[in-house]
Design a protein around this nucleic acid. Sequence first.
DNA 1: TTAGGGTTAG
Length: 687
Amino acid sequence: MAALSLPTNIPSHLGLRLLRSALNVGDFKRAHQLFDNIPQPDPTTCSTFISALTTHGRPNEAIKVYASLRACGIKPHSSVFLAVAKACAVSGDTLRVKEVHEDATRLGLMSDVYIANALIHAYGKCKCVEGARRVFDDLVVRDVVTWTSLSSCYVNCGFPRKGLSVFRQMGLDGVKPNPVTVSSILPACSELKDLKSGKEIHGFAVRHGMVENVFVCSGLVSLYAKCLSVREARAVFDLMPHRDVVSWNGVLTAYFTNKEYEKGLSLFTQMSRDGVKADEATWNAVIGGCMENGRIEEAVEMLRKMQNMGFKPNEITISSILPACSFSENLRMGKEIHGYVFRQWKVGDLTSTTALLYMYAKCGDLNLSRNVFNMMRRKDVVAWNTMIIANAMHGNGKEALFLFGKMLQSRVKPNSVTFTGVLSGCSHSRLVEEGIQIFNSMGKDHLVEPDANHYSCVVDIYSRAGRLNEAYKFIQRMPMEPTASAWGALLGACRVYKNVELAKISAKKLFEIEPNNPGNYVSLFNILVTAKLWSEASKIRILMKEKGITKLPGCSWLQVGNRVHTFVVGDKSNMESDKIYNFLDELVEKMKMAGYKPDTDYVLQDIDQEEKAESLCNHSEKLAVAFGILNLNGQSTVRVFKNLRICGDCHNAIKYMSKVVGVMIVVRDSLRFHHFKNGNCSCNDLW
DNA sequence: TTAGGGTTAG
């Protein structure tokens, strides 16, 4: 190894050459020794070395090199500052950024806009908005990069609304946003589900010829995907002159999250035909998409394909696939997946346990979730959020609030998802004042800006408590365009509290926002029928016919032993069908004696003429619960799942069933869990 | 020389 012997007292010009050749072969030890043996390294040598260490994933070594220069009393050149600022950004170490910032200030370099911009960026990567703001405020001359860096700092640190306001301020200051600015501000609109601002920025991008930019367009695709405007997402995608893997992932996600599984999957196939190679995120999007759309077997198949293509499933993959273990048609197969996942990859304790507790909660067994959660040694924000959400869906608002308090005590910083969980817990448990108070504290005490989802939760809080006018006023005062979930919450409550006027207003908005969602038409139809407004109701039916919108068939299922049994309205396909109907007839007699009165309003909830003739007893949830009671096999709880919201009469009937039979019945509908016990339901009849 | 997009929990 004589050739590698170390020269001493290397002159700077030669040192740079030797240093570069050592870095090129990845010999960092030699590079360090060489650098140490240059008595007076010039600025280019210093910045080259620092940058190279950063790009090779050694930002902390890069920062140490800078510190050693300072210790020797060498005054760093501005190029060295830029290099070390980048290293700080990569390492994410706030203290180091502060030190570099102080050094630059002392040397009078903070008016150099390049250095200032690099420091704003570095502070942003360290999630230190105060630092970034200070550098920004101290600048006299700010360019487009300064503004872009600050606004994206806010967006990436969880302050999307602040990011948007910086973006707007920038325009007022006469600095024109460029494609980089636009692509980094779009995620703020997505995060806030702020379609209105998103569309304004889309318009700006069109007017300024930015729609050829792949970053801008991918941002737009994601924006429309997040705001549930799948058609607009597709329109942007179709107009793109060049598409890369990120644009494809965006449009795939748009279809999957909007329940258009088949279209998503066919695009996935088309993607490879178009010569775009799927990456890790593509596979995660597809696997998540399969799971979200109930395609368990396909999700497992995709996991296998992902590995065959040489990709290693990561945390996100595992979190999405693990619930397959219990949703699977066949419990045994679920267990196999579980074992397979654990054998194959050393899954981190935190990720896998969180997935496990979420899976138990989604399967209706909150006690098992609680046990898992209590046993966790370390709990991160995702774990806390999952447990809060689990309680919210089961209607345990008080416990969700309690957990939120404990989370704050353990010094885990709540994020936007935390508040969605806590607020929905409040709405499902009629905790109005508590909910409003928490909503008001979000920005003030927790530095989390409320997004459209949080506003919708508050609408839901007022609505479920029967304070419909307050809910309506609140919607009108929202700082962003109200989403379908805000109007949907109001419409749902109008049915419970029989408010026809507000129902018409909300339904009109919903028909504009999601013209193809059958649920909205059905809800309004039912409200009109209950109010005996027959001619208006029939107009809705005609509207649906004209638009070719058909009601999604209701379907309930439950697991008995290793099998999942599925029921639709008037189902006779079950082998024990006769037994179920006879049992249900007997049960209804007993229930009537206990005070049950069938609510015939709900006979009319199905709009098809044939279905209208079916009696209430045929509803899928009643059939499934009856089948569950017949097959209890010593269990004390029947767990039934339904794809739509539970019908009002069924809700009432199942309360009586739980009393007459003396059994716990858990029903998960499309919105939440209902725990029926002793003639009562955990939702306090706010179904 | 400095700044940019997609995948988990809602």
